[in-house]
Design a protein around this nucleic acid. Structure first.
Length: 449
RNA sequence: GGAAGCGUGGCCGAGUGGUUGAAGGCAGCGGUCUUGAAAACCGCCAAGGGUUUGCGCCCUUCGUGAGUUCGAAUCUCACCGCUUCCGCCA
């Protein structure tokens, strides 16, 4: 969420910057809502002040044993008008909040302006794609050839966009996650965390998945379908309350970013604890609505995949340094695995809703003869922190919003794909990168069973 | 799932209808004292918002939401969370 003060004070400038990422801010609507809010709020507060002052008088007069009926008459009809105004103010403020909640973050000044993926800037390349003196297979053929990758059975069990791993490939998948977790925890100073995979709506709002992107999520209902008698009575008596809230739901996390970042929601973190650095290995669940027909073959785009996520909670001064370091931590994994990659700085038009700056790491996939995203590292500045009310105590001792930074380190499934394709051999076997062998019981090559 | 209890500021903890945004303590900040530190003593210390050039003034907030009342941390109802006991379960 953007700072509403920024919109009040520099509306056209904010609108211009949002326009670079393709978001057209409705400034007329904002000014209208804001004007309404202002007049109603001023009037409401005047009446509240009057009510409070009069009530105090009544209290004082009663204490002195005086007759209060005259003063009481004075405020008798104040209540109705005040209640109406308060309700109206609530409505306007909710509208304003709704308006703010769907505005994306402002891009950092250094982010290249562009419309799409094509306008991203390649920053650097690492490693040299291997030359193969045989016909390269994609990960699906390799995996199926090894008897460890089975999409048909996964489709029977669940449907499209799921995969089933068996034997050494399942173990390789586990080895990758362990290796990443160990590297980040032991060498990069992250605290390993185990987190809930089902979260509430507040957490999803905090990191920006809600309210705008509900269709990308899996929503899991639970709870009683019927209200109890007491609730029915309460609803009838008050008239105001609805049945809402009894039928509840969780959301399956689309990334560990959600539960991990929300660790600091509604907290004031002592400054000496910053930066907080967390790493978590979790499954991620995405509906992939709107991606029909894209990456339908293989395990590139799945409803369920594993990811090791890095999250840093920092101060505003440190957040861009933190982003560079976190990017480096993610790159380290690919370097240790010996997988060629490149780093891309996303342009304004290609960035996610909440990000102020994003680097993508793309790994080389020989079968596709191209680089594909395997990690996305972003600084969200105070955008998520404001939604979460996540703060720290600054040098002046005042609470101030933290900055949040996160990135994949890495997507486990896509790393598995990259290893299968980059480390394939002429006979269909796959060479295991050195660093993974301790996790594979010393195995150096995966061969067909 | 059943029973009981509890939810107050960064933390602990008073407070059961009227100048209570909230005693007291801890932590923090400033000062006196000290060569320095500690101790002792004195003072300051919630957040969010509105309005104002500024001093300031005002509003909201005691788990959440409704309600009663001129007035609610305090009374009523519902919900959420936590703790303990019983049951069940990995």
């Amino acid at each position: 969420m953007l700072d509403i003060q920024a919109l009040r004070n520099n509306l056209s400038e904010v609108a211009d910057r949002l326009a670079t990422r393709g978001y057209m801010l409705d400034t007329t609507r904002f000014e209208q809502l804001e004007g309404e809010r202002k007049s109603i709020q001023v009037r409401t507060q005047e009446l509240q002040a009057k009510r409070n002052a009069t009530s105090k008088q009544i209290g004082a007069a009663k204490a002195r044993g005086e007759d209060v009926s005259a003063i009481m008459a004075e405020v008798a009809n104040l209540g109705d008008e005040l209640r109406q105004l308060e309700t109206k103010l609530e409505q306007v403020q909710q509208e304003l909040n709704g308006f703010l909640a769907v505005i994306p973050n402002m891009p950092h000044e250094s982010v290249p302006v562009g419309k799409s993926e094509a306008d991203n800037h390649e920053l650097r390349k690492w490693g040299t794609p291997a030359q193969f003196d045989f016909e390269v297979q994609d990960h699906v053929s390799i995996g199926e050839g090894l008897g460890g990758l089975d999409f048909e059975t996964a489709a029977k069990i669940s449907g499209a966009r799921f995969s089933l791993l068996k034997g050494q490939l399942a173990r390789l998948h586990r080895a990758l996650a362990q290796f990443m977790l160990d590297t980040h925890a032991d060498q990069h100073g992250y605290t390993e965390t185990y987190v809930p995979y089902l979260v509430n709506a507040d957490s999803m709002k905090g990191t920006g998945q809600l309210p705008k992107f509900e269709e990308d999520l899996f929503k899991v209902p639970f709870g009683l379908p019927e209200p109890t008698e007491a609730e029915v009575a309460n609803i009838q008596r008050t008239g105001a309350s609805s049945f809402e809230g009894k039928q509840k739901h969780f959301y399956l996390i689309p990334t560990a970013e959600v539960p991990v970042t929300n660790i600091v929601r509604d907290e004031i973190v002592p400054p000496e604890k910053l930066p907080l650095k967390f790493v978590a290995h979790t499954p991620c669940f995405r509906s992939e609505a709107g991606s029909y027909g894209r990456d339908t073959r293989g395990m590139i785009r799945q409803h369920q995949f594993d990811k090791v996520e890095l999250v840093q909670i920092t101060t505003p001064e440190q957040s861009y340094v933190a982003l560079e370091m976190l990017l480096g931590h993610a790159e380290t994994i690919l370097q240790k695995l010996g997988l060629p990659y490149r780093v891309v700085k996303l342009c304004t038009g290609d960035m996610g809703f909440s990000a102020a700056m994003t680097y993508d790491i793309e790994v080389w996939l020989p079968a596709q003869n191209t680089y594909r995203e395997i990690s996305s590292c972003s600084n969200f500045e105070s955008f998520q922190a404001r939604r979460m009310q996540a703060r720290f105590r600054n040098a002046q001792g005042k609470p101030e919003l933290v900055h949040t930074v996160n990135g994949s380190g890495l997507a486990v499934g896509r790393t598995l794909v990259a290893i299968l394709e980059n480390c394939q051999q002429a006979d269909g076997s796959v060479r295991i990168p050195e660093v993974l062998r301790p996790y594979m019981g010393g195995l150096d090559i995966i061969r067909a069973a």
